[in-house]
């Protein structure tokens, strides 16, 4: 199981490097789509069908928006010219990566090993959720019942973003 996942995540890393270094923006977007659909396969292996469904929808919509944006503008990627402060940038990047590595190490040392996760807080969700919420899908039960306010906030963010998109993209303002 872990080997299978590692191979797919390795392909996703290669695709993301391709996306970052591609000379054409359209091929960069296609490589990003590879990463997103690889994530769908990872979710299916990790027994998360709800996540796989929502990730397919999200990836497709993102790809459509990105292709529409690129076709409406320019496809070219610029040459990265070396500038005077490049040494500072490289040093800062390594420092940033080192700090991230320290935090990752601290986060990972408190976790269980992969595949041996113990249910702590969600023990009550798993055992009593079907009777309390009436939903056979435990993810839907958690999302809509135990943590319904989170979902309300998510809907708020979604509508705020929709209003923002409409406001930004409108060419002529109303009087």
């Amino acid at each position: 199981m872990e080997v299978m996942l590692s191979v797919i995540i390795g392909f996703m890393i290669i695709a993301s490097i391709t996306a970052i270094y591609a000379k054409d923006l359209l091929s960069a977007i296609i490589a990003q789509g590879f990463v997103g659909y690889g994530l769908v396969i990872c979710f299916l292996i990790l027994r998360a069908p709800d996540l796989a469904i929502i990730q397919i929808v999200m990836e497709t919509v993102t790809l459509i928006i990105m292709v529409a944006v690129v076709l409406d503008s320019s496809r070219e990627e610029f040459d990265i010219m070396p500038d005077k402060t490049q040494g500072v940038t490289i040093a800062a990047s390594f420092l940033f990566a080192l700090v991230l590595l320290i935090y990752f190490n601290r986060a990972i040392s408190g976790l269980d090993r992969f595949g041996n996760h113990t249910l702590r807080m969600s023990e009550a969700y798993v055992t009593g959720a079907a009777e309390q919420t009436g939903s056979a899908n435990l993810v839907a039960g958690v999302l809509w019942d135990f943590r319904g306010y989170d979902t309300l906030g998510e809907a708020t963010v979604l509508f705020t973003a929709a209003i923002g998109v409409i406001t930004i993209i409108r060419l002529v303002g109303k009087k």
Partner: peptide
């Protein structure tokens, strides 16, 4: 498998789309 991280990630995916 644990349903709680899956529910949280589902919320995060929709917000990422927005």
């Amino acid at each position: 498998v644990d349903p709680l991280p899956q529910a949280m990630v589902l919320t995060a995916i929709v917000i990422a789309l927005a």
